[in-house]
Amino acid sequence: MESDLVVALGGELSEYEINLLVRNFIDTPNKFMTTESSKLSGLIKKPLDAIGEIKLQLIKRHIKFQTLYQRNEDIMSISQYGTGIETLDRMLKNILLPLQDNRVWELCGIIGTGKTELLYTLAVNFVCKSKCTQEVLFIDTKNDFSVRRVHDILRERKLNKDDRDNALRAIKVIEVHTELTILAVLEELYKKLRAERTSPNIRLVLVDSLPACRVGFSSDDERWESCCLLTQLASLVRRLATQYHVAFVIGNLCFSQQDENVNPDTYNYGYCDDSQPQTLQQDRLMLGRYWSTVSTLRLALEHPQNTNCSDDDIRLVKVLKNCYGPSGETCLVRITDAGVV
C-alpha cells in the first residue's frame, strides 16, 4: 500500500529518495513540510532551491481556498430560526445576527431581570416555529425548571391541547448539578449526532444558568479544576455548534461592581473580566475573562433606567458584545403571561 508520502511526492522525488526520507522517520507530507529544508537537502542530495520548490508544489496541491461565493452558498443553507420576539428579532436583524444554526450566545443580567423567562420563551417559540419537528434541550442547573410555567405560556397563546402536548414533548429538560454533568450531557449529544443514529433532533440548547453549577468549587484547587472544565465545555460547545449546527444560549449572571458579597477572587476564579475599562455604571460578569471570549453575541437583560417607564414588566435587552458587528443596540421587551413579547 502506498504511503502518504508517495502519494504526495511521487511526482517530484524518486522511490529511492522517498525511501531515504522514510528511513529517517519523515514518512508523512506534514513531517516533510515541518522538517528544515537544509536537513532535507542533506538527506536526498538536492539543492535548497529544489526543496523549496517541492514544498511550494505540495502546498498548492493540498491547500484549497474557498471563495467567498462558495462560502456564501454554505451560509445560505443554514436555517434561521429567529427568537420569535418581534422587537428583539428586529434589533438582531439590524446587526445582521439573527438566531440561527451554530450560534453561541450568552444571556446575562442581574438576578430577577427575567433571564429564565426569556429562555422559556425562546424554547417555546423555537418549537412552535419548527412545528415541533425540531427539539430544544433545556439544561437546568438550578433545579428550578417550571414545566407549569412553560405550559402556561403555551396556554396563553391559545394553543389547543394537542399542539400544547406536542410542544411540551419537543422541549427536553435535563437537570444537572455540576460542570462535569453538563460536559457528560453534551458529550453524549455529540456522540449521538456523530453516530447519526436515530439522533435526537436537538437544534437549540439552552443553559439556565452556568454559574449555578459551579457552587461546589470552593477551594483554590477546585476553582482551578473548574477553570479546566470550563475550557473543555467551551471547546465542546464550539464543536457542537460548528460541526452539527446546534445553537446555544447560555445564561450567565451579572453582579454589581460594588456588591460586597461578591468577591471577584472567589466568584470569578481569579479571572475578572477586566478586558474593557469598566465604569461604576457597568455590572460585571461571572465566569471570568476566558468565558467572555466564548460567545459570539452577548445579550444583557436589564431594568430600564428611564424613570418615565413605570411598567415593572418592561425590560431592556442590550447587545453587550457582538463579534461580527456593532454592539450597544437596545430594544424593549415585555414580560407577560404569554412569555416575553
Partner: peptide
C-alpha cells in the same frame, strides 16, 4: 443596606449569587 452604583439600596443579605441559587 447595600451600596450599588453609588446609592444605598435595601436588599436581602448574603448577596446576589445566593439569591440566584434560590428557587
Amino acid at each position: 443596606h447595600r451600596l450599588v452604583r453609588n446609592r444605598f439600596t435595601i436588599s436581602p443579605a448574603l448577596g446576589d449569587f445566593h439569591g440566584h441559587l434560590l428557587n
